[in-house]
Amino acid sequence: MLKQTLTGARSLLTGMKVTFKNAFKKPVTSQYPRERIEMSQAYRNVIVLVEKEDVGSHDCIDCGMCERVCPSFCIKVEGERPEGMKRKRATRFEVDFALCSECGLCLDVCPTDTLGYSREFDQAGYGRNDFLYDLLIPYRDREETVRDTLRAAEAEAAAAKKAAVAKKAAAKKAAEEKDAAGDEAPGGDGDDS
């Protein structure tokens, strides 16, 4: 009996020692919202369309890969081919965040890498529809200008390509002509160079 009491007292004291030591530690909790902790760089939340520098806007080309791979079927993408452009542009990109499980498969498959995660963390709402995100909102007002720039860039690229093709064709033609000329009149004044 006495032995039991002594062991009990000793184990109690050992426990007290541990709690006593810990009582003087700095608290590990942070007082949100007065204090904020640093967010992880890899933080995952609702997806957003990332602005690409070379486009000056998002670069969603409505390929539909994210829509297809999404396990929760929460992405809706629609797009159109603007007049005079080869590349498609998204006209609608909606995410139902209430269904999203933040797996990140859509980011993996995106061919233009235009999807990223939002840094929001405190979404709240009164109904399910509060979590329907229209990802195109930040880009809508400048879409026309972006399209004009892209169209111009595409036209430029096309022109450059055309010029390159034409140049190549011309060179080929010249070479052929030269060959032909060489066949017809050996030692003729072809531009040998």
Partner: peptide
């Protein structure tokens, strides 16, 4: 969880 959060971006369901 903080350590895992720093590479996975989530705290429980990592994927």
């Amino acid at each position: 969880l903080d350590i895992l959060d720093s590479i996975t971006g989530s705290r429980l369901t990592y994927c």
